[in-house]
């Protein structure tokens, strides 16, 4: 169970809508297992089917949160036309075993869907999200 405040869920969906049809991406950070801040990042791939965060932006956020003893507990990105489930590319490029990968799906524009997964060694494990 991964607990996340509703305002962060809304922010991820809003970011996804703003960037559609391109994918958006961002970093969620906080004490271990928690989310205390959301950082929108630029999708350096600027694509409807790919996302990548500029390594320099990852480093900047990593350094900013280090002093607070926070971690990058989750990453998010959007799927503008497919379900909120990791694509083959997501699985192949998952290098953060301790961070949850959140996917926002806009496939149903009326009802955006957010799901979370741990991606480890090619394995997909869904983690239930609890919004509060």
């Amino acid at each position: 169970m991964f607990r996340i405040e509703g305002r962060f869920m809304q922010e991820m969906v809003a970011h996804s809508r703003e960037k559609a049809p391109n994918e958006c991406c961002g970093i969620l950070a906080g004490p271990p297992g928690q989310v205390a801040a959301l950082y929108r990042t630029v999708n350096a791939s600027a694509s409807p089917i790919r996302y990548s965060i500029d390594p320099k932006e990852i480093l900047r956020i990593a350094q900013e949160i280090e002093g607070k003893d926070w971690e990058m507990t989750a990453f998010y990105h959007s799927h503008t036309h497919s379900e909120a489930y990791p694509s083959a590319t997501d699985i192949r490029l998952a290098f953060w075993p301790d961070s949850l990968y959140l996917i926002v799906s806009l496939a149903d524009l009326q009802q955006p869907c957010v799901r979370g997964f741990y991606l480890r060694g090619g394995q997909v494990t869904e983690e239930e999200l609890e919004t509060f």
């Binding site: 997501d90 490029l93 998952a94």
Partner: peptide, 10 residues
């Protein structure tokens, strides 16, 4: 020195 893996996908 920081070693950072990519955050990327599709």
């Amino acid at each position: 020195v920081s070693i950072l893996p990519a955050v990327a996908g599709g």
